[in-house]
Structure formats: structure tokens, C-alpha cells
Simulated scan of single mutants.
Amino acid sequence: MPDHATALSSLLSRTDAVIVDLDGTMVDTMGDFNEALNRMLHDLGLPAIEAERIESMVGKGSEHLLRSVLNHVLAHMDKAQAAIKTEAFFPQAWASYQRHYLEINGSYSAVYPGVVEGLTALQSAGLRMACLTNKPLSFARPLLQAKGLAGYFSQVFGGDSFERKKPDPLPLLKTCEALGSLPARTLMVGDSSNDAQAARAAGCPVVLVTYGYNHGQPVGGVDADGFVDSLTQLA
């Protein structure tokens, strides 16, 4: 058995519960982001943003995403006034984005290969599971339902479920409480430095997928306990 597989097996043998991220970990939602954001920009009379620009902005919550998109688009029009105009546009942008995202939620996204098989194996092993995402809860729950993933999780928490978002450790600590598990025996599975930093600060082991977003940066340089190309490797 390869060393990395042995390490994963050893880690799972010390695990009572698993916390799984959503965007970039279970579901490729970049198409949803691209569609909703460009519908929002159209409503505001602003130019569209290229899909490849969005990846580096995803992962820190919808408020951060919208401000990043607005600042990027407005900077091309008037760099000196971009930050001021971003805040001026934000309330209208937020309302428009929420409306459009809920309309298309899941329509332009797909579950990554191996996710269903991996979650099924973890569930069959008797592990308690929660989904913890920085996505608003009103977006996360319908997406999990639409993609047939909701039944794997006893708890689902979004970026607005607690006072702070990942990479702050608070969401992980609160999720561990809800699962009734100790952080040291609760595995965080994510795709980015946000997940890893939150897990380290909370005292949870962390494994990252290699195919996610990670703010557009290579995930291999992130401090984690392991990396997997598919959730089936956690089986």
C-alpha cells in the first residue's frame, strides 16, 4: 500500500466525524457563479466578467465575491474611484445576485466524479457528517438537495450560520459541537487554504482535494494532512 494511502487510512481510523466543504469540493459551481454574477452585472449596466477571473475570488463568502467582482469591473472604468463605487453599487448588487443565484442554483453546476461514492463509503463506515460552506445557507441547502447530496449530512451550515466564516476556526468548532465530536477526531475535507487554516486553528485534521478552486492557486503548497484526487480515496 502506498505511503499516502497508509497515512489516509491511519487518519480515518482516528476519525469519528467528517466536515465537508461544498464549492470546489463536492460540486463544481463555477458555472453557477459565472451565470448569476453576469446577470447581476447586466442588471447594474456594468460589463460582464470573464469566467476565468472568478475562480480566484470564490471561497471567502458571497459578500467578498461580489465586492471583488465589482471592484474588478469598476477598476477598468475608473481605478481611482473603484472602491468607492463598489460600496455604492453593493446593496443593489447583493439583491440582484441573490435573486439570480436562487433562480439558477445548480443549473450550471455538476457534482465532481467520486463524490457520491466517497460520501456513501464514509456514511457506511458510521461516520457522522456535516457540510460546512462559506456559501449562504439559503444557497447551500437547495444545491445539496438538487444534486442529491443532502441525505448524507445530519448538519448543514453556511457562511451566515455563525458570526465568522472560514478561515476563522469558529465555524468548525461550532460544527464539531453540533456533531458531538472532538475537533481532534473530526476530519475537515475541503479544497482551499481557507479550509486548511480553519482546521489547523480549530485542531481538526484536514485533507484537501486536488481539483478544487483554492482561490486560483496551486493547492499543493497548503499545509494539510493529505491530498486526494477523489473522495473515493477516503473510502
Rank of each mutant, 00 (worst) to 15 (best):
V18Y: 02
K174N: 12
A110V: 13
G45E: 11
W94A: 15
V156D: 08
T29V: 01
L65M: 13
T25W: 00
V189R: 05
A51L: 11
N34T: 15
K165T: 08
L231M: 07
R164T: 15
V73N: 01
Y152M: 05
A178V: 04
G203V: 09
Q145P: 00
L187H: 05
G216M: 06
K165M: 15
H4Q: 11
R14Q: 13
L102H: 10
H42D: 14
I19N: 03
L208M: 03
K165P: 02
D160V: 09
P2A: 11
C131M: 13
A202Y: 00
E55Y: 11
L12Q: 04
L44K: 06
G212R: 09
L46Y: 09
D21T: 07
G220H: 12
R200P: 05
D223V: 15
Y152P: 00
S138G: 07
A17C: 10
T232P: 01
H4T: 11
S96H: 09
L65T: 02
C131G: 07
I84Q: 14
R128Y: 01
M40P: 04
S154V: 06
V219W: 10
A184D: 06
D3Y: 08
A82D: 03
A199T: 06
A121R: 02
R53S: 14
V189C: 03
F33E: 00
M40I: 11
T86V: 13
G221W: 11
G159S: 09
H215P: 04
R53V: 06
L119D: 00
L137T: 10
I104D: 07
K166C: 10
F89Q: 08
H100V: 13
E63D: 15
A48T: 13
N105H: 04
E87D: 14
T6S: 02
S109C: 10
S62N: 12
D191N: 13
S124W: 00
R164C: 08
S124Y: 05
D229P: 03
D229L: 06
R185S: 03
S154Y: 01
V58E: 11
F90R: 02
A202T: 08
V69C: 00
P47T: 01
P205Q: 05
L74T: 02
G114R: 06
E63W: 00
S193L: 10
D168T: 04
V116L: 00
G221M: 08
G118D: 01
A130R: 04
G221C: 04
F139C: 12
G126D: 07
F90I: 02
R200C: 06
V116S: 03
A198L: 08
H4Y: 09
L22A: 12
D78Q: 10
G114T: 07
H215K: 09
Q197S: 15
I84M: 12
A202N: 01
M26G: 05
V209N: 07
L179E: 02
G203A: 09
Q123K: 13
T133I: 14
N34A: 10
L41G: 01
P218C: 13
